[in-house]
Amino acid sequence: MITIDGSDGEGGGQVLRNSAALSLLTGEPFTIQNIRGGRAKPGMMRQHVTSLEAACAIGGAECSGLMVGSRELTFRPGRVIPGEYSFAVGTAGSTGLVLQAILVPLMMADAPSRIMIEGGTHAMAAPPFEFLQKTLLPVLERLGPTLSITLERHGFYPRGGGRIVVDIEPSALRTIQCTQRGAFLGGKAEVLLAGIPFDIADRELTAARKVLSEWPEEAFAPALLPADCGPGNALLLEASFEHVTEVVSGFGKLGVPAERLAKTAAKRMAGYLASQAFAGPYLQDQLLLPFAMAGGGAFTTVKLSQHSRTAMALIERFTGRGFRVSDTEDGAHQIEVC
């Protein structure tokens, strides 16, 4: 039984989700205390409960302490059983983060799976649908499995109500090298609007264009969604390279000017473009677990995040596999499974 302090490292829900995935993959039970101890409101929120419910469902696991507000939990895994599953967060909690707890175990299962998750698809502090579709899953497919994801309905904070469907054709994982992103193929800036004034899109696109001035004017465009999907607003910045696509997002919030939201997101994208790294800060920590389970491989990335450092330590505890981090000649960092 592995005992984990949920306040260590980044101290958030990632510790819980990664622990569940690792437990299903290794068969090692765990107890986690001080769940989300590094957050202003510690304990499990609805999306964390749904993540663990999903892990229990696909892995025949026994779990005590699984409730909203709980700060301690014990998880005993069974055998991963692929198939068709449906999970509903019931709030605008992230569908993508629920998927994080079960994706790699199902990628390594012995039969295909189809997963439907309802909740938030575009919300702060979580990867939007486009990041999963265009950034994460194409890289994971290079490891061996066949993956597809469909957005059936957008879900913004605070309403939620979004729906994604993920199809997984599993495979033994092979090691890959993701050290070069290749030539730049083009950029795109899109503003999603649902049930809010159109001028917000103009203001966000104008602010983003000032930072990303080398992108052509036609790369900046709004996308109007049905009003009943909202209210909601998301800015999605996409940079395509030969071997990877980076998606940076910003989400509308009361009290935050549209210009500030767009400028912040655009500067993050500009920072990635100025680097020579394959993985941005969010893809970075998502690749650690599948690369470790493949038993090797390497990728280049920007500065290591606290999320990644926390994930590395957790993966080593469950699997015994560590990571070697080194600087590259062009100022990026290389992460290698060792």
Rank of each mutant, 00 (worst) to 15 (best):
M1W: 07
I2Y: 10
I2R: 15
G9F: 05
L16W: 01
N18K: 05
A20R: 08
L22M: 10
T26P: 06
G27P: 10
T31N: 03
I32M: 15
R36G: 09
R36K: 14
R39Y: 11
R39N: 09
K41F: 11
T50F: 04
L52V: 15
A57I: 01
A57M: 07
I58G: 10
A61H: 02
A61P: 02
E62L: 07
C63R: 04
V68R: 11
G69F: 11
R71Y: 07
E72S: 15
R79E: 14
I81D: 04
G83P: 03
G83S: 03
E84R: 14
Y85L: 08
Y85F: 15
F87S: 12
A88Y: 02
G90N: 00
G93W: 01
S94D: 01
T95G: 05
L97F: 06
A101T: 09
V104D: 03
M107L: 13
A111K: 06
A111E: 02
P112T: 05
I117S: 06
G119S: 08
G120Q: 09
T121A: 05
T121S: 08
P128F: 10
E130T: 07
Q133V: 00
Q133H: 13
Q133C: 06
K134F: 03
T135A: 13
L137A: 06
L147D: 04
E152C: 12
E152L: 11
H154S: 03
G155T: 00
G155W: 00
P158W: 07
G161K: 06
R163M: 13
I164W: 03
P170H: 08
S171M: 05
I176N: 12
F184H: 14
F184M: 13
E190M: 15
V191S: 04
L192H: 13
G195Q: 05
I196H: 00
P197I: 09
A201Y: 07
A208D: 07
R209A: 15
K210M: 11
K210P: 04
L212N: 07
L212E: 05
W215T: 10
W215A: 10
P216M: 04
E218M: 04
A219G: 09
P222N: 10
P226V: 00
A227Y: 00
D228E: 15
D228G: 02
C229L: 05
G230I: 03
L235N: 08
S240E: 12
E242A: 13
H243V: 01
V244M: 06
V244P: 11
T245C: 13
T245L: 03
E246F: 01
G250K: 08
G250V: 00
T264E: 14
K267C: 14
K267L: 15
Y272T: 03
G280N: 10
G280R: 12
Y282I: 04
D285N: 09
L288T: 14
M293Q: 12
G295S: 12
F299L: 08
L304K: 08
L304P: 11
R309D: 08
T310Y: 04
T310K: 10
F318P: 13
F318K: 11
F318N: 12
T319R: 11
G320V: 02
R321G: 14
G331T: 02
